[in-house]
Design a protein around this nucleic acid. Structure first.
Lengths: 220, 220
DNA sequence: TATCTCAAAAATGTATACAAATTATACTTA
DNA sequence: TAAGTATAATTTGTATACATTTTTGAGATA
């Protein structure tokens, strides 16, 4: 399992994320248990149980659960089992943010920013499956970070957990053309062609969703 | 102080918000203390102190603080003191959402939906200051709810707390033309003129922000 | 005076005990 | 049998005690 942290850590006074030790670790553990299926979709959970399983008290479990509820990985004392509609909603929101972000990118990205994106494309072609997944995330993250809008970036990051679950479920990083589309987007950014970049990223995200939903429908 | 609940309640299995008693009440109390200035912007807070003040244990205070952190009303053990930049970021996000939402409204709002909006405009003209504030919120909320996108609606609601703080600080509901703009937007929706409605709401929100920032600059 | 060090104080993190609420189960009754 | 009801079991909410970390502040030293 990859080491990516879809994080939401609280910051200390220097703005540096701190390890709230148990709290933080519990959150990560539970999140990973959801991702890798140790905790199954729709499964009922209790604080008591999880605390026993992890050999700690309910207090840190409680806080971890609250965070996971925030990210919609837990809902109503159950492990999330997002519906098609849930995914559509998320992608609708994502499209709004990323369309805005890519426009900023065409206006403001420096050559080195663009180089970074090209690098992700490169790895997307050549890397292992695990690397592909990471790099796909980095690609979109890089673009969204370009908004420099703290709130927007935070909301985007919060959505990552569900998006990760989606990708994992439907293996959508295997979708044909995915990296080609990334490449085209970078080209549009490079050419400072805002409208084209917007159009491309919207299509890219819609294709992603459609591909995913197609396989999701078999699963359930 | 108005009774509006910028809520984020957890739901029970029937989807009905439940009163987590102390937890919920503590959240509301603290939020209102922030809104009405009992807790001042930038003021340092501690769980211990608040618990003593409210005459309860730290546990529910803790959870309430977490929720307020989520809404950015508390940050880093201090009552929030948003910067101009923070407000700009929020409005950037808001514009994205509301522009999308108003487009949906022009496409899908029924006569009775539109009537509801007209009603808010009416009260906006005739009502007391308190009512004006409520109705302004209802107006925008109605439009955003029209997206029927749960995630979008939730994020929008989360932003309401900071937006409320902003309005309260700068009395932006007193802005000249505010209700006229609402009226124009309703007209555009009624005429199913998507582009015009989008344009108007974006201008409306930008004007709101500018007006607010103008007065905010004096304050600090 | 400035800043450094270290102990005391205070705050937060975590565990645990108890209370209140919810859920499950066995029994009753129609 | 189905539906309802009362009680037991479980679970979550809240308080409290203790552990660990962070902050404060007094005194030492340059």
């Amino acid at each position: 399992m990859s080491e990516i942290l879809y994080n939401n850590k609280r910051n200390n006074k220097w703005g540096v994320p701190m390890e709230n030790s148990k709290n933080e670790k519990t959150y990560e553990t539970l999140r990973d248990m959801i991702f890798n299926g140790d905790l199954k979709k729709g499964e009922k959970i209790t604080e008591t149980n999880l605390a026993n399983t992890l050999g700690i008290s309910r207090t840190p479990v409680r806080e971890a659960i609250r965070r996971l509820e925030q990210e919609k990985l837990i809902d109503n004392n159950r492990i999330a089992n997002p519906t098609e509609r849930d995914y559509q909603d998320i992608f609708e929101m994502r499209i709004l943010i990323e369309k805005f972000a890519v426009a900023k990118a065409t206006q403001f990205f420096s050559p080195s920013d663009i180089e970074e994106l090209e690098n992700y494309v490169e790895i997307g072609y050549s890397g292992e499956l695990e690397a592909k997944m990471d790099v796909n995330k980095s690609f979109h993250e890089k673009i969204v970070n370009g908004t420099k809008n703290k709130m927007m970036i935070e909301y985007f990051n919060q959505m990552q957990s569900i998006i990760y679950l989606f990708r994992k479920t439907v293996l959508s990083y295997k979708r044909p053309g995915l990296i080609d589309e990334h490449k085209e987007i970078v080209t549009a950014i490079k050419e400072r062609d805002t409208e084209r970049a917007e159009k491309l990223i919207v299509e890219h995200l819609k294709a992603d969703l459609e591909f995913g939903l197609y396989y999701l429908r078999d699963d359930e």
